[in-house]
């Protein structure tokens, strides 16, 4: 049984964590940590309960700037209509994470800091050029989210560092995004492959594109090659296929109980074009407003 420290402020939390670098761990929603503690993957002696801290929960949109506090519950992202329009991929990722009960407890910060290769939130933040804002013993600093993840279960955070928020750029018009995944079950499953894409469309062509993946490399990754393949195009089939091919080449999946490496590469090459296509349809107003993409991007019509 771990001792629980309830800090009165962010500074107290940082100080406590810095003073106990090998024994203390922060806990917010606890949806990963409690499972890890039960299976023995993690044996914290001291828990620093962040859930009562003020000022780092919730999110705000200011023009094109989105700031998401680390303590923001996944569920509150999932249910926000404005985010649904502006950061559709993020909301789609939130929709498929765990169960309603898990989403109600789990936080964005926890999902990022746990560093799980298949974590749902990173790809959808990466396609919005997200930056991690961190408070540590030496003050505040920022790291591009693409450089935040180091290895499975590891991030750049040093003992005493706390992720406080993530800022991202969400264009207000002519842009769209999408998050798709491959799973065994159609709900309550971890991604075998996760793909987020965003596009900005100007004059009938892609003026900016982002593609990010999870579960197919030791850390979530941005695929610049895939982005370049569609820049300046109107997403003709060959450009989409090329983007898929480049993404499949760029990733480095493993074989495990949730699929083989070869299969995962195939799925990347399939889901990247689909995600880009749906992002394009959204950017151009051709996708039904407020309608989420099917999990695997296949539009089922009756």
């Amino acid at each position: 049984m771990a001792d629980v420290f309830i800090p009165g402020s962010l500074e107290e939390a940082v100080d406590f964590l810095a003073d106990h670098p090998t024994t203390a761990m922060p806990i917010a929603g606890g949806t990963d940590l409690l499972v890890d503690a039960r299976t023995g993957r993690s044996r914290p002696e001291r828990l620093v309960d962040l859930s009562g801290l003020r000022g780092i929960e919730g999110f705000e949109l200011d023009g094109e700037l989105l700031r998401v506090g680390a303590l923001t519950r996944i569920r509150s992202i999932e249910l926000d209509a404005e985010l649904g329009r502006r950061a559709t991929a993020l909301v789609e990722a939130a929709r498929v994470l765990g169960s309603v009960q898990i989403r109600t407890m789990a936080t964005v910060g926890g999902n990022l800091c746990h560093g799980t290769p298949s974590a749902e939130m990173p790809p959808s933040l990466l396609v919005h050029d997200a930056v991690a804002e961190i408070t540590g013993k030496g003050g505040q600093y920022s790291v591009p989210l693409a450089a935040f993840f180091v290895a499975p279960g590891r991030t750049v955070l040093a003992p005493g560092d706390l992720l406080t928020s993530v800022r991202a750029r969400v264009p207000s018009s002519a842009a769209g995004s999408c998050y798709l995944r491959q799973t065994v079950r159609w709900s309550m499953d971890l991604a075998g492959v996760g793909v987020a894409a965003s596009v900005h469309v100007e004059g009938g062509a892609v003026s900016n594109a982002r593609v990010a993946l999870c579960a197919v490399a030791p850390v979530p990754m941005v695929v610049t090659g895939a982005e370049n393949a569609v820049m300046g195009t109107s997403l003709a089939p060959d450009a989409l296929a090329e983007a898929g091919r480049r993404a499949a080449e760029a990733c480095s999946p493993i074989s495990d109980a949730r699929g083989t490496a070869e299969y995962r590469r195939q799925v990347v090459s399939v889901l990247v074009p689909r995600a880009l296509r749906i992002a394009w349809l959204r950017a151009t107003g051709s996708w039904p407003e407020g309608s989420p993409a099917p999990v695997n991007g296949v539009w089922t019509r009756e």
Partner: peptide
């Protein structure tokens, strides 16, 4: 309904 791309 089978998704031939992913096998789902």
């Amino acid at each position: 309904e089978v998704d031939p791309g992913t096998g789902m």
